[in-house]
Amino acid sequence: MKKKLYDLQLFAAETGASLSTDLEPAISIDFTSRISQNIRELRDLLGVTNLIPMSAGTDIKFYKWTVENLAEQVEEGDEIKPTKVKRALNQTITLDLDKYRRVTTAEAIQKVGRTIAVNESDDQLIKKVQKAVKTSLYTMLKAGTGSASGASLQIVLANLWAKLQEYYEDEDVTPIFFINQQDVADYLGTAQITMQTAFGFTYIENFLGLGTAIVSPQVTAKQPIATAKENIRGAYVPMSGDVARTFNLTADETGLIGMTHSTATSTATVDTLIMSCVKFFPEFADGVFKGTIAGE
């Protein structure tokens, strides 16, 4: 018995040793809180009141409404011809886990310090994660089926606004526009305008008196996009349960992002692991209108 106790002491941690548990929580909690706050700002900007929690692997289906022209009125007693209304599947996306990982070596930490090697480098990774969320939104917006055109940005946005008013005739909605930065620059010239940022988005409130305009290079030049904020939905896979417990993920109270830092003594490195699945999408593709600036 004494021998066994003696052997166990060979594997005990040295007093004052830095353990992986000393490194992981503080850094991960700080980062997840900041990312979640950014997502909340994006949600507010897009007008998404609630993010819907869903299981990983869930399919989100997008639909398009088709309504035939109303039939002509008939005389008393004559047969009334039907008007066909069809709701057809337009697109399907699957809520797959997004996984990101980077490795920091002991040499990198020794050379520039842990703050730059781990924390500031993680900041750069997070920017890429945020960009992936935005890219998925733009991909689905570009799948919109409505259209409008005009000779200039101002005319196209006005026509897009008119299309929204027609489509959402019986609803009280808030227009939102997505515009390439060059189109905005061409229109504004030297005009002074106040721009703000959220989640890496640059946006202009009440642009031309029409609604919020989000400015991004991910929108094709001369092809602005418009929809109603009420048409944009959000869903996420909570970073909890078996996956979080298995990989020791840290998340804030929202559960939007899971993150962990761990040391690998066999390679003298620090691993950064991020898992998430946050998607913003238009509920109806035909409620998204793509503009074309035809020029002179």
Rank of each mutant, 00 (worst) to 15 (best):
Thr32Tyr: 07
Ser55Ala: 14
Thr212His: 05
Leu188Arg: 10
Ile60Thr: 00
Thr220Lys: 08
Thr104Cys: 08
Arg87Gly: 01
Phe177Lys: 06
Ser276Met: 11
Phe207Gln: 01
Trp161Gln: 11
Thr265Trp: 00
Glu24Asn: 15
Leu273Pro: 03
Asn119Met: 07
Leu8Ile: 02
Ser121Phe: 03
Ala148Pro: 06
Gly241Tyr: 02
Val112Lys: 10
Glu24His: 05
Tyr138Ala: 03
Ala148His: 06
Ile126Arg: 09
Thr174Glu: 14
Asn38Glu: 15
Ala228Lys: 07
Ala71Trp: 01
Phe284Arg: 13
Ile60Val: 15
Ile29Trp: 10
Phe247His: 13
Gly47Tyr: 04
Val215Met: 04
Gly16Asn: 07
Arg87Val: 11
Arg245Cys: 00
Met140Arg: 13
Asn38Asp: 14
Met54Lys: 15
Gly209His: 09
Ala148Gln: 06
Asp123Leu: 08
Met275Arg: 05
Val237Asn: 02
Lys84His: 12
Val173Gly: 01
Tyr100Phe: 15
Glu72Ala: 12
Thr66Met: 06
Ala117Ile: 07
Lys3Val: 07
Leu46Met: 07
Ile27Arg: 13
Met54Pro: 04
Glu14His: 00
Asp186Gly: 03
Phe199Asp: 10
Tyr138Cys: 00
Glu14Ile: 02
Phe247Met: 09
Leu208Thr: 02
Ala26Gly: 13
Ser149Trp: 05
Lys86Met: 04
Leu5Arg: 01
Ser216Met: 02
Leu8Arg: 07
Thr212Gly: 04
Gly291Asn: 00
